[in-house]
């Protein structure tokens, strides 16, 4: 494949630290509007069949930038899973509480991603998806999140039409209320790794990590971002644990058989 669409070391590390990566796709003229128009007219939710009802969605899923990011994160033979869902946030509906999908079995690997596609511009009033960077490694039962609303460092998906957000499957997410008279469309896809890496599948520089550990200095290189990134400012103990898990993930992605802690 065209390697120009593979992620860089900094982008890979950014994903490990924050749990998401945004792509603004250069889709054919009028495609976003056609997709949004067809969704506006749907009178039922077809569930997994949404991509059969709106086949233009495949042009987003198969865009070279999306494929490049997926190969980088999940390996060359990643799988597009059969489950997908049209999340239509109806006009004048309330927020959705924080949650992680599924039950608690979070892992120290990068094996499953969500792909969230937005065919229209999303404003803060339209009920954007909201994520909490760095929460993808937490074994937090969704019911335990019921007393949280706004969290320091949360990021609303206030995005341009044609944005494809890749998120770690376990990232905390919810939505704000839709206070407009517009339907807010988001189509969710699932992607899965099918085999372990034996070598990096992104644009990896083998010397990327050969820099000094910046205990108190500049931290704008992959090694130090991976070690010291703390997007929501968690306490020291949690930060140490996050760091260990990220390095395990990193070594696993490198194809290091005996992934060790740092």
């Amino acid at each position: 494949m065209d390697k120009s669409h593979l992620l860089t070391d900094m982008e890979m590390v950014g994903f490990l630290v924050n749990g998401y990566h945004l792509l603004e796709l250069d889709l054919p003229e009028g495609l976003n509007e056609r997709i949004a128009g067809r969704l506006d007219e749907l009178d039922h939710n077809p569930g997994d069949a949404i991509a059969e009802e709106v086949p233009e969605l495949w042009q987003a899923v198969e865009h070279p930038a999306v494929k490049g990011a997926l190969v980088s994160l999940l390996g060359e033979d990643y799988e597009v899973q059969g489950h997908r869902h049209w999340h239509c946030k109806q006009p004048h509906t309330g927020h959705m509480s924080w949650h992680q999908d599924s039950t608690n079995s979070r892992d120290t690997r990068i094996d499953r991603l969500l792909g969230l596609f937005y065919p229209t511009d999303i404003t803060p009033e339209m009920g954007p998806t909201i994520i909490v960077p760095g929460t993808q490694f937490r074994n937090a039962p969704t019911d335990r999140m019921a007393t949280y609303t706004n969290i320091h460092g949360q990021v609303p998906m206030v995005v341009k039409a044609g944005t494809f957000a890749l998120t770690h499957y376990d990232l905390w997410h919810g939505t704000a209320a839709n206070r407009t008279s517009l339907k807010r469309h988001m189509i969710k896809f699932l992607f899965r790794r099918v085999r372990d890496n034996r070598a990096p599948t992104w644009n990896h520089d083998p010397e990327a990590m050969d820099v000094p550990t910046a205990w108190g200095g500049k931290r704008d290189d992959p090694k130090n971002v991976l070690s010291f990134g703390n997007p929501i400012g968690v306490g020291q103990s949690d930060h140490y644990k996050e760091r260990q898990i990220r390095w395990k993930c990193w070594n696993n992605l490198l194809g290091v058989a005996d992934a060790t802690d740092r």
Binding site: G94, E125, H152, Q154, P156, V158, G235
Partner: peptide
């Protein structure tokens, strides 16, 4: 004395709901 990471007010007013907002 440590910094706050999450803030949720609950007002005892009928129909009040604490919610996640895009603009914090």
């Amino acid at each position: 004395f440590s910094e706050i990471l999450g803030y949720t007010p609950v007002e005892p007013i009928k129909d009040y709901r604490a919610e996640i907002t895009a603009d914090v």
